[in-house]
Computed example of a mutant assay.
Amino acid sequence: MDIGGFDLNLLKAFDALYAERHVTRAGLRIGLGQSAMSGALTRLRELFDDELFVRAPSGMQPTPRACDLAVPISDALRPIRQR
């Protein structure tokens, strides 16, 4: 994966989606509208070459790849949030 042009805000979007399991609520959590959050999910899907979150009756369900990424992303964001 080439991270040269990687937008680190996408990690924040991923973390919010994983926690909320809902695009609109995840956007509200991090100060983005539904459209911007959907765009972030599209970019995340392209970056990781995986759907990451799929629509289900109970909300957006993470794929196995998203589950594998959740803890490392959360761990990476933790020190930044503590500042």
Rank of each mutant, 00 (worst) to 15 (best):
F6I: 15
F6P: 15
F6R: 15
F6L: 15
D7S: 09
D7H: 13
D7I: 10
D7T: 12
D7L: 09
D7E: 12
L8S: 15
L8Y: 13
N9Y: 05
N9M: 07
N9F: 02
N9P: 08
L10F: 01
L10P: 06
L10G: 11
L10C: 08
L11H: 13
L11M: 15
L11F: 09
K12N: 15
K12Q: 14
K12Y: 13
K12C: 14
A13R: 07
A13S: 12
A13L: 01
A13G: 05
F14K: 13
F14I: 13
F14H: 10
F14S: 14
D15W: 04
D15N: 15
D15R: 12
D15M: 11
A16G: 08
A16D: 03
A16N: 03
L17M: 11
L17E: 03
L17A: 09
L17Y: 01
Y18K: 14
Y18W: 12
Y18A: 14
Y18L: 15
A19V: 08
A19N: 13
A19S: 14
A19Q: 14
E20P: 11
E20C: 08
E20F: 00
E20D: 12
E20S: 09
E20L: 01
R21F: 00
R21E: 05
R21S: 07
R21Q: 10
H22M: 04
H22R: 11
H22E: 11
H22D: 14
H22C: 08
H22L: 02
H22Y: 04
V23F: 01
V23D: 01
V23L: 08
V23G: 05
T24Q: 07
T24H: 05
R25E: 12
R25H: 13
A26L: 03
A26Y: 00
A26P: 10
A26K: 05
G27L: 02
G27P: 14
G27H: 03
L28S: 10
L28F: 05
R29T: 09
R29P: 13
R29G: 10
I30Q: 07
G31R: 01
G31H: 01
G31V: 03
G31D: 01
G31N: 01
L32S: 00
L32N: 00
L32D: 00
G33H: 02
G33M: 06
G33W: 00
Q34D: 09
Q34H: 06
Q34C: 07
S35M: 04
S35P: 10
A36S: 12
A36G: 07
A36R: 09
A36W: 02
M37K: 02
M37E: 00
M37D: 00
S38D: 08
S38H: 08
S38C: 06
G39Q: 10
G39E: 09
G39N: 10
G39S: 08
G39V: 03
A40M: 04
A40Q: 09
A40Y: 04
L41V: 02
L41H: 06
L41S: 05
L41D: 02
T42R: 08
T42K: 08
T42G: 02
R43Q: 10
R43S: 10
R43Y: 02
R43V: 05
